[in-house]
Design a protein around this nucleic acid. Structure first.
Lengths: 275, 275
DNA sequence: CGCGTGGTTGACACGGATCAATCGTGGTGG
DNA sequence: CCACCACGATTGATCCGTGTCAACCACGCG
């Protein structure tokens, strides 16, 4: 049994900042700069979108030539649910939350996205409105590839199609897995899976070593408000809180504020598969 | 209030046949015929896959030329979870269930599919194994488009890419909606939505006319075992049974065995949106 | 210093799952 | 032909997981 660290003495100085408030959006300078990259859309960005086997240099240059860039300050809206989509939208860098604005005005995050990543690569092909809302949770560099332009590009660069298809297929795969989790796994299993996904890839297969000094128990810092994490897991903040407490008592993890130490990777994996 | 028909005097002669049992698979003749269509893959099939704005005749002919056809008898396996995918798989005609075989051997249907429709158009692009199992629930004509061949086709017919992209995008859209329903709607709402989806398109917007003799209340026959319907809705058969009884008592529907009469379309729509 | 925000905790309600029993149907073998 | 049995649906009783509501605490900010 692992003693839970004293919650009341923790420092919350490292707490994730509130993310979707207008005052912060206004406070940050609305500069139009190209993020941390020298080129507007660099190789690293494309690799994040297409994986290691992405398009070649010529194709990437073509894509870049039709991209329209804009920045969105933290808290701003990237696109809105129901608004017609005419372009493939991606985040070159920065954090964006995909979700739905409820009737009460509260924003329900369904999927957090860290650039470089696609935000909506499907609606435009269907000439349909965006299916979700996208809100910047940090300053973000957005790129839009107008659908008509990309179609024209496909005529001249047939090889591009394969990569766009693969990238859409990746999204289908992810959504299918997510649906399956929602249908068949309970909250503890989903949370365990969520934790494992955020683990550095190094500490994947090792068995739980609760007290062995050899391999260090991986430490991970939660980058979002806990209520946003709960939202992604489709549970309430209260349930998430109880869940973390429960896993602590079982010695699977050790929680101190926004730092979570995974003490028993194998145990978490077992938990994540119960369903 | 609508009197519920006497359940015990109903005839179950029209009950859907058990679907996934080996004896039936063996009982039906394993003929290799080309289904009900004269051409192996006819225009109607392609339209079901790509919608009204599908590829042109030349492109369709090219696709047909690389398609490999096979039939699967009722109860047979079309492809298995984990098996490597080298082709885009579609059902030209017939009924297939997409789902997962549980560790107990029970097959959990997650999505029923009526040909013509795609069965897996994503795994092959990623060179990954199929994410789900596909089992024929009736005699089915399967077509496989080898991924390598389709890639070659894209070089010569760039216009094809647009339609393959749109078709994948449609799947993304459907999965996104489905995920949202699972996260935010309760069982009655999901069942109501399920019923509305199966309604003939004619009786969409009409308000509920419980007793008006004018517009006939749409009647629909359940084509699957109720436990399979429950499986799609991610609820248990018991819950589905109680749900149908409950909606009957409220006068929204009238149930007699495997026939469901929708008495109050508007009421169902209201129910489907609660969440 | 008061207030707003976010997190934690407890009491409670409720939806849906689980377990068990019964019924109707259809298939099978004596 | 009939008894038997397997299977699916239904119903009732009960349990469990989460959501809801409310109170409280901790922190940071104006």
């Amino acid at each position: 049994m692992q003693p839970s660290l004293p919650m009341h003495s923790r420092t919350l100085t490292d707490r994730p900042r509130r993310t979707l408030r207008d005052d912060e959006a206004l406070a940050s300078p609305p500069l139009l700069r190209s993020g941390g990259e020298s080129a507007p859309l660099g190789a690293r960005t494309w690799q994040g979108l297409f994986g290691a086997q992405g398009p070649n240099t010529t194709e990437l240059a073509a894509l870049s030539s039709v991209a329209r860039l804009r920045t969105v300050a933290a808290g701003g809206s990237v696109f809105d649910h129901g608004h017609p989509a005419t372009a493939l939208v991606l985040a070159a860098s920065g954090d964006v939350a995909l979700g739905w604005r409820g009737s009460d005005g509260v924003f329900h995050i369904e999927r957090p996205v860290r650039g470089p990543a696609w935000l909506d690569q499907s609606a435009a092909w269907l000439e349909q409105p965006h299916a979700m809302d996208a809100r910047a949770t940090g300053d973000v560099l957005i790129a839009e590839l107008p659908c008509a332009a990309v179609r024209a590009l496909l005529e001249r660069h047939p090889g591009l199609a394969r990569h766009l298809l693969a990238s859409l297929a990746r999204e289908v795969h992810g959504l299918t897995m997510n649906t399956h989790e929602l249908m068949h796994k309970d909250a503890p299993a989903r949370f365990a899976a969520w934790l494992l996904l955020r683990l550095p890839a190094s500490s994947a297969g090792s068995a739980g070593s609760t007290a062995s000094g050899g391999s260090a128990a991986p430490l991970l810092r939660l980058g979002e408000r806990k209520r946003d994490i709960a939202s992604q897991l489709a549970i309430t903040p209260e349930t998430l809180s109880r869940l973390m407490r429960s896993l602590s008592r079982q010695g699977l993890i050790s929680v101190a504020g926004y730092s979570v130490q995974v003490l028993d990777v194998a145990g978490l994996q077992r938990l994540a598969e119960s369903g």
